[in-house]
């Protein structure tokens, strides 16, 4: 299973972005991403142009939109459903998510910890949902320079707490791409483990939580059991002995920063007796682990342009 970089949170002139849908697709191609989802605020009218341009450029494209409500934002990925954002509020949101999921779409809670009104229209998650497992994805990192953003640290902590409660949700990054960026605006990507290179496979992979988010590192991370069977990120395994196997490469596509140094791998979560922090560099890495019921999260720590950063944050392995 290979993981490919995507951007799943984008905007065009069909809401408040500056790109035409076709120019957004060209930028996605230029940056070396494999594909994207168009998620204009409460609008789907740019999807047809973006799809046509993506087909011409050889990109994987997903139709979508962002429910931009007064109580929080949720991207709906897939383009199979219809909905009315004006009807979405804390009382109806779970029912509305179930409706779009029944159509084959998926729901990602976006920038849940970003301050909202009056700075931004309802960005902060005020849905007060009791069971976050309703979401397929959780935007742990958002915006430019995600590795330096305090708001993302709060989102990481919120995501960890959800995992501790037993939630199983794919981690996502969202550039929240509204237009061209400057050289000092660094970006990450959501890496998605695909069985096939098409939109249907992207949706399936996110539903099955085969994701990690990273700034500057392309990785392949698996758990290997005693019989030699491999489990991908987001997968479920039984308690027992495993070997964590990682292949780490610097991301060389244009969207990624050039000056990236990997220093440590941090293994954490309730599946371990205690956190494990070990020195690593680009290349291969393997670690024998005894896992108990809970979750096992993988992070890579290092530097981007000389500044300390979390380089990679994975969807955990879930241990029963």
């Amino acid at each position: 299973m290979e993981f490919y970089p995507f951007e799943m949170h984008t905007h065009t002139r069909h809401s408040d972005g500056s790109f035409l849908p076709s120019s957004l697709a060209e930028s996605v191609k230029d940056e070396g991403l494999f594909g994207f989802c168009l998620t204009d605020h409460n609008a789907t009218t740019g999807n047809a142009e973006a799809q046509k341009a993506s087909e011409q450029l050889g990109l994987i494209f997903l139709k979508g939109l962002e429910w931009t409500t007064f109580h929080g934002h949720i991207t709906v990925l897939g383009g199979h459903s219809t909905s009315d954002y004006r009807e979405i509020n804390p009382d109806t949101v779970v029912e509305q998510i179930k409706k779009i999921q029944k159509s084959g779409d998926i729901a990602v809670l976006t920038h849940p910890c970003r301050p909202g009104s009056p700075f931004c229209s309802g960005c902060y998650d005020d849905f007060n949902i009791s069971d976050y497992d309703i979401f397929d994805g959780f935007e742990v990192w958002s915006s430019f320079n995600p590795h330096l953003n305090t708001i993302n640290k709060n989102a990481e902590a919120k995501y960890d707490k959800l995992c501790e409660k037993g939630c199983k949700i794919a981690v996502m990054y969202g550039r929240d791409w509204h237009g061209p960026r400057s050289n000092d605006q660094l970006v990450a990507a959501t890496y998605i483990g695909l069985e096939e290179l098409n939109a249907k496979s992207v949706l399936k992979a996110i539903k099955e939580r085969r994701t990690y988010i990273s700034i500057g590192v392309r990785a392949n991370i698996k758990l290997k059991d005693s019989l030699g069977n491999f489990t991908d990120l987001g997968g479920e395994v039984r308690a027992g002995n495993y070997t964590l196997v990682c292949r780490l490469q610097q991301e060389l596509a244009r969207f990624a920063p050039e000056n990236v140094i990997v220093e440590k791998i941090l293994l954490s979560g309730t599946a371990l007796e205690e956190k494990i922090e070990t020195k690593v560099s680009f290349g291969g890495f393997a670690k024998f682990l005894t896992l108990k019921p809970g979750f096992l999260k993988v992070e890579l720590l290092g530097k981007v342009n000389g500044k300390k950063a979390t380089l990679l944050f994975s969807t955990p392995f879930f241990v029963s």
Binding site: F119, Y124, T150
Partner: peptide, 9 residues
């Protein structure tokens, strides 16, 4: 006030 609510100084 909004940033404080969001846990950001």
């Amino acid at each position: 006030a909004e940033f404080e609510r969001a846990g950001v100084c």
